[in-house]
């Protein structure tokens, strides 16, 4: 049920972002979720992540739940930033946005660390999702990436010795091109 909520929430945020991207000069804002719901959204993500198994091999359902959580995290981060861009006339808006996003990530990041720490294969799976998320934020030139990177890079290096050359190259690419 929580995964269904999470999926629905992701589609709502995606719809809102599509509206913002396609109608940037629209006078009618399409911001269905206030930024102060950040912690509630993080809570929902955590409930889904709690079902992730520590010792046994994850089922396809659990693996897709993990992917779904990462997609929600990416969408929420981009959404917060776009809402801030829309409200650039309000001086404190950027600060509020940074706060909302950092609070969100400070809540979910420890669980990603925990899952990545279970084993090398768990770590690799988390790394693939996380790198894709970071690359996505870089692609949209997210200024929040600079704030988030120091926190999230620790997850990438949990199993530092076993990072594949491909992953190391992708991490380096992100470090080389700050937004």
């Amino acid at each position: 049920e929580c995964v269904a909520h999470l999926r629905l929430l992701s589609w709502i945020i995606l719809g809102s972002l599509n509206h913002m991207a396609m109608c940037p000069s629209s006078d009618v804002p399409c911001h269905p979720l206030p930024l102060d719901t950040s912690l509630q959204i993080a809570d929902l993500a955590l409930v889904v992540l709690e079902s992730y198994p520590e010792h046994t091999k994850a089922s396809v359902y659990q693996m897709s739940s993990l992917a779904q959580v990462f997609i929600l995290c990416q969408l929420w981060t981009i959404y917060c930033e776009q809402v801030a861009v829309f409200n650039t006339s309000h001086g404190d808006m950027y600060r509020t946005t940074c706060l909302a996003v950092m609070e969100f990530w400070m809540k979910v990041a420890p669980t990603f660390i925990q899952i990545a720490s279970y084993s090398k294969s768990h770590g690799e799976m988390v790394n693939l999702h996380l790198l894709s998320l970071l690359e996505g934020l870089q692609e949209v030139n997210s200024s929040l990436l600079v704030q988030l990177y120091p926190m999230l890079v620790t997850i990438l290096y949990i199993h530092e010795g076993s990072l594949s050359a491909g992953l190391q190259h992708r991490i380096q690419e992100i470090q080389n091109c700050p937004p």
């Binding site: 999926r7 589609w11 995606l14 991207a21 396609m22 897709s64 992917a67 997609i71 996505g136 692609e139």
Partner: peptide, 23 residues
Amino acid sequence: NKALLKCLQRLQYKMGQLEVQSS
């Protein structure tokens, strides 16, 4: 906005795949 739309399209594709998996 082009970059944002491209990124959203990719996420939409991934979400679509996950919907198929879950159904």
